[in-house]
Nucleic acid binder design. Structure first.
Lengths: 343, 343
DNA sequence: AATGGTTGCTAAATCGATTTAGCAAAACAC
DNA sequence: GTGTTTTGCTAAATCGATTTAGCAACCATT
């Protein structure tokens, strides 16, 4: 059982490949192919189990019907969910998605972008890392359809879908302050990503605006080194919490929060009585933890869907009303037990 | 800035496309291309930023250098980890991996298999669902390289990498029995997957062999409906535990365990004092939970690597010593707090 | 000067589809 | 019976690479 090509069917039925192609692509009547011949060709195609070679189709049509999705780490829940919604949404438009993880390594990111370009993907969906700015600019200048997600570069006119990091963080900070926490720390990561900076800015502003009665409130930030070992980072976190006598801590992203929980567990620090915890970005772990952890939820599905739509706009799939090419979606604070200490 | 092709370079430098192709593929000396010309072509290729069109290359060479990976659900941690190791390992052999999730839907699984075949992937890595048997047989009979992982069909001669489900489960059961638990329940899912059946068989055998002193020990199994709602399933679990007065429960796979934790949390059942918990397959949540959950760890990395190796063997990359085409790797029980009640 | 061997490069086929332009035969018009 | 249309189909170009077979031009040999 070898592979069956158009030519095989053509030879079997004694017609030309053109005719077979027309029939199989539903252009039989348009091309005035007789009903009898159509039936015959369809039947043998079916019998032989013909499956068109997409590689050849792509070469000829110039379309692969594939989108490239570049995320930080596909095994991180946030990106896995994002990938899933994107895949489902893209399918509705007849596109497949191939995912790649950059692991925050700009060399790897560049290599992957190049690889996707060589594979002739029809469009790019990217959660960029700091080193990718040049490459993305280049893609965009070559008129390749590109959409950025979750983060972007200031001053870049590329379409993107972001989250209202500032608003979500502010909301969470208000909650902590209202609950009477005064020594609130902020733990972030040194990737220079602008969504992290926005979250930190909201934190700083919230601290600065704290009622004067709580006079001693001060900005207290720990910036974790992304490439350090887990153990080293846990040590840092525990030292940060203890030496600053914090009563609450805000983690800027989900893996920091998870690492934090691991650290608190080892240090036997009780949540929320000894320390309140909030994390940006929800996760099964936070929902299931005892006590469950207050979080700022990101609109993952909406982000994925909107991103695909922005890309389809560029691919000429003119969905109705494609107005703004740069979106910002709202994040939502969800209060749970981790921020409600017993009176 | 349009796309640059071989032909463009050929015209710019005044040579034929053949020559350019030879040079860019490192066959310059083999084809006795003069050093001067080689330099010139390389220079202009570089200057124009030439990137070969992989679609064309694939069509011509008959190789896409792409492997298709079909898993149950890429957002499930186990499969995400598996995908990651596979991706890394495949890269060493010059292959890219595209992942797809079947979501245990055999229709979707078939559609994905067909799609991957049409895209001319060079090989398949599959965690099959029960409905895929026919399709996989067909692939194998067409001499397409295929490797199954995690599960397989009895009597199928397709290469695969499995886990010693029976051994891992037995080990966990011994542990529970030694700890004095007597009313041990088993919760599985109705997908008819053989790895689940093996785990259940180990459970049953362990119960049957329990010391006679613990006379009342009886097989107590709940089979969850995969497609039921989460709420319905939680209700089932809670009823199962209460009505059977269980003192320990074994979850056959990670999402059941996670669902179980959620359920126990809502029912305010304390672990391990009221109920001991063990789950097949580790997860961040189990490691971080308070108390942390005893699990049977699967050798994910090893499975991924071995699977790629089995596939490479079929692709003729003759790694040294490719002996057995059907592997079974050991699972390891890890005792944690969830199975050690206070005396 | 004829022969043979290198050297350095190219023409053309090929992979498997799509699509444009056009051809022969039949049908119709008058 | 001749001219025009319509019908039903096909030849050939094309996408962008790889690769086989082979052609000139030059050199060396006798």
């Amino acid at each position: 059982m070898k592979k069956v090509s158009l030519k095989d069917i053509a030879e079997m039925t004694g017609v030309s490949t053109s005719t077979v192609s027309f029939i199989l692509n539903g252009k039989a009547s348009e091309m005035r192919i007789s009903e009898a011949l159509k039936k015959k060709v369809l039947a043998t195609a079916n019998r032989l189990g013909y499956q068109p070679n997409q590689v050849a189709v792509s070469l000829r049509t110039g379309q692969t019907k594939i989108l490239g999705l570049l995320v930080e780490d596909i095994s991180n829940n946030f990106f896995a969910m994002l990938a899933k919604t994107i895949e489902d949404e893209a399918e509705k438009f007849g596109y497949r998605v191939v995912y790649c993880s950059t692991e925050n390594d700009s060399k790897k990111g560049q290599a992957l972008l190049r690889m996707l370009a060589q594979r002739q993907v029809d469009g790019f969906l990217i959660t960029p890392t700091s080193g990718m700015e040049q490459d993305i600019r280049k893609l965009h200048s070559q008129h390749k359809p590109v959409v950025l997600m979750d983060r972007c570069f200031s001053g870049m006119e590329v379409p993107h879908v972001l989250v209202n990091n500032y608003g979500g963080t502010s909301e969470a900070m208000q909650h902590l302050i209202k609950k009477g926490y005064t020594r609130i720390g902020f733990i972030t990561v040194d990737l220079g990503l602008n969504q992290m900076l926005e979250r930190e800015a909201a934190y700083s502003d919230a601290i600065a605006k704290m009622p004067a009665t709580k006079a001693k409130a001060k900005k207290t930030v720990l910036t974790i080194n992304y490439h350090s070992s887990k153990e080293e980072n846990k040590k840092q976190i525990s030292k940060f919490i203890k030496s600053n006598k914090l009563d609450a801590v805000f983690f800027a992203t989900n893996y920091l929060g998870i690492l934090g929980l691991e650290c608190l567990r080892e240090q036997q620090i009780r949540i929320p009585n000894e320390l309140a915890v909030v994390c940006f970005d929800d996760h099964d772990i936070f929902r299931l933890y005892i006590p469950d952890i207050s979080v700022v939820q990101q609109p993952v599905e909406e982000m994925g869907r909107k991103a695909v739509h922005l890309l389809m706009d560029q691919l000429g799939k003119e969905r109705t009303g494609s107005k703004d090419q740069q979106l910002r979606l709202n994040a939502k604070f969800v209060a749970r037990e981790s921020t409600s200490r017993e009176a």
